[in-house]
Amino acid sequence: KELVLVLYDYQEKSPREVTVKKGDILTLLNSTNKDAWKVEVDDRQGFIPAAYLKKL
């Protein structure tokens, strides 16, 4: 599985998104959309803007 590093805090703005903190390391589920990547956070799945993430 692929991991990503969170570069900036992000507060979810819709039910399809998830809230993350800078420095979190998350499982990347889908990065086919260049604008928003799907990740898993504490058994929740949701989207975060790709600009907030860096592949490890």
Rank of each mutant, 00 (worst) to 15 (best):
Q11L: 12
E17T: 06
I25E: 01
T32R: 11
Y10S: 02
E40Q: 15
V4H: 00
D24A: 12
L3R: 11
E40M: 14
Q11F: 14
S14E: 09
L3V: 07
T27W: 13
L7R: 04
L56C: 13
S14N: 14
L28G: 00
K38V: 14
I48L: 12
N30R: 07
V39Y: 02
L56A: 03
L53E: 01
P49A: 05
V39E: 00
D24Q: 15
D24P: 00
L53K: 01
T32L: 10
V18A: 04
K13W: 07
L28V: 06
A36H: 14
L7P: 00
K22P: 02
G23T: 03
D24M: 15
Y8H: 12
R44L: 06
E12Q: 15
I48N: 02
K55S: 06
L7S: 02
N30C: 14
D24G: 04
W37K: 00
E12W: 12
V20R: 00
Y52M: 08
G46C: 14
V39A: 02
P15M: 09
L56I: 13
D35W: 15
K38D: 03
L28I: 04
L28N: 00
Y8Q: 14
D24E: 12
E17N: 07
I25G: 01
P15K: 09
V39M: 03
E40G: 07
K13R: 13
Y52R: 03
E17F: 08
V6W: 03
L7F: 02
K54V: 13
P49H: 05
S31Y: 08
T32P: 03
T32W: 10
D35I: 12
A36S: 14
A36Q: 14
V18K: 02
T27A: 08
V6L: 02
Y10W: 06
L3C: 14
E17W: 09
L3A: 05
V39K: 01
R16P: 06
Y52D: 01
A51M: 13
A36F: 15
L3P: 02
L7G: 00
V20P: 01
T19R: 06
R16T: 13
T19F: 06
G46V: 15
T27D: 03
K1E: 08
Y10D: 01
D42I: 08
K22Q: 10
L26M: 03
G23M: 03
K54H: 11
D24N: 08
V18M: 14
K13N: 09
Y10K: 00
K34S: 13
D42T: 07
D24V: 06
T19K: 06
V39P: 00
K54Q: 13
R16Q: 14
Q45T: 13
N33P: 05
L7I: 09
R16L: 14
G23S: 02
E2M: 14
F47M: 07
L7K: 04
D9R: 03
W37V: 02
D42W: 09
D9M: 04
G46P: 03
V41L: 11
R44C: 07
T27H: 10
D35K: 13
A51N: 12
K21D: 01
E40V: 11
E40I: 12
L29S: 02
S14D: 12
V20N: 00
K21W: 09
D24R: 11
L26K: 00
V41K: 15
L7Y: 03
D35L: 14
D43G: 15
P15R: 09
E2D: 12
I25D: 00
K38N: 06
Y8T: 08
L28R: 00
A51H: 13
P15I: 09
D43L: 09
Y8C: 15
N30Y: 07
L7C: 08
L3N: 05
K55T: 06
K38I: 15
G23I: 02
T27K: 13
A51R: 15
R44W: 15
P15S: 11
A36E: 15
N30H: 07
R16K: 12
E2H: 12
T32S: 14
R44P: 01
N30E: 15
I25S: 00
S14P: 06
A36C: 15
A50I: 08
P15T: 09
E2N: 12
W37D: 00
L53H: 01
Y10R: 03
V41H: 09
K13D: 06
D9A: 06
A36D: 08
L28C: 08
L26Y: 04
I25P: 01
F47I: 06
D35R: 13
R44T: 06
P15V: 09
S14H: 12
R16A: 14
Q45R: 09
D9S: 08
K22Y: 04
D42M: 11
K13V: 08
Q11P: 04
K21M: 08
T27M: 10
L5K: 05
Q45S: 10
V18S: 02
L3Y: 15
Y10E: 00
Y52G: 05
N30M: 09
R44H: 07
Y10V: 02
I25Q: 03
P15Y: 08
R44N: 05
R44G: 06
D24L: 09
Y8W: 13
K34I: 11
K1Q: 10
D35G: 11
T32H: 11
I48C: 08
A50K: 08
L53F: 03
T32Q: 13
A36K: 12
D43Q: 11
Y10A: 01
L5I: 13
R16C: 15
K54P: 02
A36L: 15
D42R: 12
K54M: 14
K1Y: 13
L56R: 02
I25N: 00
S14I: 05
E2R: 14
V18E: 01
L3F: 14
D43C: 13
I25W: 03
S31R: 07
N33M: 09
L56W: 08
S31T: 09
Y52T: 04
E2P: 12
P15C: 09
Q45N: 07
K54F: 11
V41P: 02
N33S: 11
N30D: 15
D9I: 04
V18N: 03
Y10P: 01
G46H: 11
K1D: 07
R16D: 15
S31N: 07
D35V: 11
